[in-house]
Design a protein around this nucleic acid. Sequence first.
DNA 1: ACCTGAACACCGTTCAAGT
DNA 2: ACCTGAACACCGTTCAAGT
Lengths: 220, 220
Amino acid sequence: VNPQAAPASGSRLGLTRERILEAALDLLDQDGLGALSMRRLAEELGVGTMTLYGYFRSKEELLDAAIDMGARRIGVAPVSGSWRERLRHLVLEFRRGLAEHPGIVELRLARPVITPGALELTEAGMEILRDAGFAKRDAARGYRTLFVYVFGFSAFGPGPTAADEREQVRDVLATLPSERYPRLVEAAEEAAEAMADDTLFDFGLDRLLDGLERELARAP
Amino acid sequence: VNPQAAPASGSRLGLTRERILEAALDLLDQDGLGALSMRRLAEELGVGTMTLYGYFRSKEELLDAAIDMGARRIGVAPVSGSWRERLRHLVLEFRRGLAEHPGIVELRLARPVITPGALELTEAGMEILRDAGFAKRDAARGYRTLFVYVFGFSAFGPGPTAADEREQVRDVLATLPSERYPRLVEAAEEAAEAMADDTLFDFGLDRLLDGLERELARAP
DNA sequence: ACCTGAACACCGTTCAAGT
DNA sequence: ACCTGAACACCGTTCAAGT
């Protein structure tokens, strides 16, 4: 069930899978996925590179485990209220967690994972939707839509550098040839703002919640 | 304005920036971003690795240009109809194009680009929304939301292997400890379906369009 | 049982040299 | 002007060896 290569018992260096994963997540948060190499990670931990292969069969396996652990870190404390309020809170906290740990988004791109840690939030979301009265299928579809939205926004939406880039984006848009890009040139200011604006997340989220609410009203 | 290293005139090998980019996009579609190395690309073109650096200053610059060209390939023929129908068509075609060229999604993740080719669809979307009567700011926000949704779904939604994986996902979900994951275990079938279901894209899209329609009705 | 250096097949890019 | 091999500083991983 858990096909890992791991020393399990007393390690001479005090190394554990957990310590390795924590160092990996730190490295990820600091310098991004590109900097997360087995050699660099080993150096950070003060061990030989090959030592890591005693704990994880491959980099692939290490990254999978890192996602699981990272997902667990993004725990969301439940709140009370209507199902819509509860779900809205969960999604916003989810989004906040991913914004704080952008490496997890990067990691998740190439590797769709279904590990227990990664499914904790799914469970919480399903509970809210089922309590609200959604059928199993509608609850699953509804949560999945929100999940994809959160990840999509975290990956392709405005990042923390957005404010710096906004002016630059506006300048580029404003200097496009206005014969071919008339709508963009005339709305350069607004388009640059939309690309940098984080409140856009709430806009889309509320539209999706509107849609779910209507769906629930239709088939109660 | 166009700070590229390029031979511009007669090349001895018949090489052009365009030919290189086409080969890069082919490689991307076939074997993914991981396989797209300067060495492999040069080999594919039958030239020395360093020859490429006569046309692009760095791999970074080559990838930026490849996105621009890739985005142009995903052209969407305009249709007539209501603004909602037109916009819906544009988004669905956009989605289809990205599904056919998943490498572009991969590329775009790490590098938010604002090049002319990448902005053609933005211009088309803005035109539809402005014609419909949206103010500049609302049009920019509306298009941006849809854009992020499309990319998010393309990156994190079900891929072409979804059908194969569905059974596997269901099995994993069904064997989770039901004390901690009661809602997921009881809805394992439905959740697995939601993760694999491509029609989910339409569901979220229609919810977002609903939201835009309501916004337009509110402030005409 | 746990740890590791050397070696292999890969990267992107600089530099100096070839025509 | 255009092209390129050698070299450098990196990768992940296998293998054989060390304690």
